[in-house]
Design a protein around this nucleic acid. Structure first.
Length: 587
DNA sequence: CTTAGGG
DNA sequence: CCCTAAG
């Protein structure tokens, strides 16, 4: 199930290695499988997860959860809450024909919304993807409480209600340090019950172990089969508090005869701004949007439940008691996702200086260095967020997501995003290798990429590898931003030199460098074009950083939906992943 | 930590 | 890019 999968992959969309540190094999597996879903919007499933589990958990309240939710106590009812994402969820009997175009992520602009829109479900947008009237009939089978219809659809739409500034600020601090990892947060939501009495779940390996174990059991439990507590039995809570054993909760699963099935057909992300150069590729755009959206949901989120426009504060109440299960109006039930105000902050450097956005919650920094690039910028942010200046440490041009891991614990090892080498970088690399030869990547790094923190010597070595490969194939087979033929020729030469040196001890330059190959490369007008590029590029001062110009700053590397799997494979080919559409989006 | 290669 | 076996 997606749900399970998502849990494994974590909140921010990146794979989450098995608990503390799993065997390489396992991690590798996870990594592999993840790649295939890399471009998928995971927030979607995530939300589904939240919603589903929320209900599930709702039946059996627990302290841990209370802590979490109390954070939002001071909430929207006072019109003070800013930044809450309303998830309007409805249950309709409309047969699911097809989610159609609405399915998936829709980025829409809600900026038009009335500033004073009351924080009620009314403002929630409900998408009827089928254009059918949404009804919320209660099952006629006489079953009272739960609106449960296997055929029912639930449209979940996220509405950004940011008009009111949030007053629910640091309350959370009172309730203990929130998890920084969204993924972890979710897990806590899922199995918080079991952790009620476990104060330091983060540090205890064994606990973690059992925790995950239990979690798995939870996840594996067929979603539709999960039962909800129908009766709020005080004694239950007691049991909860006294038991950590996974099995202690099981009875809950079997008590009910009716359950709620939620199906999210679509949702919208809160308003945010993205600005990318016109020369960016469509795939770049996609990636950018993806990252932005992912970022929004990757942090810690607070979940609130609203019924009839009213916020349900009592977490101890059962769904039944709150009436959630009864006559649900179409939009009666709503969820609010509220990013932790302090964790979900983006860091934007002052205008004029390189833009950088930081998301602490998932410890990913999105940076953009446009010191010399005026026409390309990427802004990802959520309005009314706390902004903090942060030095743009990244020297490479373009947008980059740099994992910033501060916690020494076994953190999720996120795959670095692809950051195609710009022509200027290639040039710098070639230049360095020409002097140092291959095999001294450390030196190459120091010499030419010392200030490019995101380029490790391994990266350089890899790049060289692909460069050699690129130089050997025909121009038509190359992808990404074309590398000037001149550079490729030098690559082959340098490579041959190094080879000679090693094999024959002969240090002749040029000479025997695969003639056939060279011929292949220089042939065709492609080379001419590239030459032109070279000319324009001119001599750089050896520093690639100053030449983001060519690389439309957005080094986004979207593997186009179709052939994404190709790239992640072995040789990460050249630049702009989406070589297929290197043409400007407009003009 | 670096290299060198396979994936 | 990642992961690793070897220096």
């Amino acid at each position: 199930m997606v749900l399970q999968k998502r849990l494994e992959y974590g909140f921010n969309g990146y794979k989450v290695p098995p608990t503390p540190r799993a065997p390489r094999s396992a991690r590798k597996r996870a990594s592999k499988s993840w790649k295939k879903n890399e471009d998928r919007m995971c927030a979607f499933d995530l939300l589904a997860t939240v919603a589903g589990e929320l209900l599930h958990e709702g039946d059996k309240p627990n302290q841990e959860e209370n802590k979490v939710f109390k954070t939002e106590e001071k909430d929207c009812d006072q019109g003070s809450c800013n930044k809450s994402f309303f998830l309007s969820e409805i249950i309709s009997k409309a047969p699911v024909s097809d989610s159609g175009p609405t399915s998936g992520i829709t980025v829409s602009d809600f900026s038009q919304k009335a500033p004073s829109a009351p924080r009620s479900v009314e403002i929630c947008k409900i998408e009827d993807t089928n254009n059918k009237e949404m009804t919320n009939e209660v099952p006629t089978n006489g079953k009272p409480p739960l609106v449960n219809n296997l055929d029912s659809n639930v449209n979940l739409v996220i509405r950004d209600d940011d008009d009111n500034s949030c007053g629910c600020t640091q309350n959370n601090k009172t309730f203990g340090p929130p998890s920084r990892i969204g993924d972890r947060r979710i897990r806590r939501l899922l199995a918080s019950k079991q952790w009620k009495n476990c104060p330091k779940l983060n540090d205890d390996y064994r606990n973690k172990k059992s925790f995950y174990k239990h979690q798995r059991s939870l996840r594996d439990y067929p979603f539709k089969k999960r039962k909800l507590y129908q009766f709020d039995n005080p004694s239950n809570s007691n049991e909860d508090g006294s038991s950590l054993g996974p099995t202690s909760q099981d009875p809950a699963f079997q008590t009910q005869d009716s359950h709620v099935k939620l199906k999210i057909k679509s949702f919208r992300v809160p308003e945010f701004v993205i600005e990318i150069p016109e020369t960016a590729t469509v795939s770049s755009l996609k990636r950018t949007v993806m990252e932005a959206v992912t970022a929004i949901f990757s942090g810690e989120l607070h979940v609130g439940v609203m019924l009839q426009g009213k916020r349900i504060r009592d977490d101890e109440k059962t769904l039944l008691q709150t009436g959630i299960c009864h006559d649900n109006k179409l939009d009666a039930l709503g969820f609010t996702l509220e990013p932790n105000k302090f964790q979900d902050r983006y860091v934007v450097s002052p205008p004029g200086t390189p833009k950088s956005l930081t998301r602490y919650s998932n410890e990913v920094v999105i940076q953009h260095d446009d010191a010399s690039v005026t026409n390309s910028r990427t802004i990802i942010g959520v309005d009314s967020r706390e902004l903090v200046a942060v030095p743009a440490a990244d020297s490479g041009g373009g947008l980059a997501v740099v994992p910033v891991r501060k916690s020494k614990h076994a953190e999720v090892a996120q795959r670095r995003i692809r950051r195609p080498f710009s022509v200027s970088e290639v040039e710098a690399l070639v230049e360095a290798v020409e002097k140092l030869g291959t095999g001294r990547w450390r030196d190459v790094k120091l010499r030419a990429f010392d200030d490019a923190k995101h380029r490790t010597y391994v990266d350089l070595k890899d790049k060289w590898k692909t460069l050699v490969h690129t130089a050997r194939i025909s121009p038509q087979q190359r992808r990404g931003e074309p590398v000037p033929q001149e550079l490729l020729d030098r690559v082959l030469t340098a490579h041959a030199d190094a080879k000679d040196k090693f094999e024959d001890g002969v240090g002749s330059s040029a000479g025997k460098g695969e003639p056939a190959v060279v011929g292949c490369c220089s042939g065709g007008d492609g080379a001419a074009v590239r030459s032109g590029v070279v000319a324009k590029l001119g001599k750089s001062d050896g520093r690639h950083k100053e030449h983001g110009e060519l690389v439309a700053a957005i080094t986004m590397c979207i593997e186009s939906e179709g052939d994404e799997s190709r790239n992640d494979g072995s040789d990460s080919e050249e630049e702009e992943t989406s070589s297929n559409s290197e043409k400007p989006i407009c003009a």
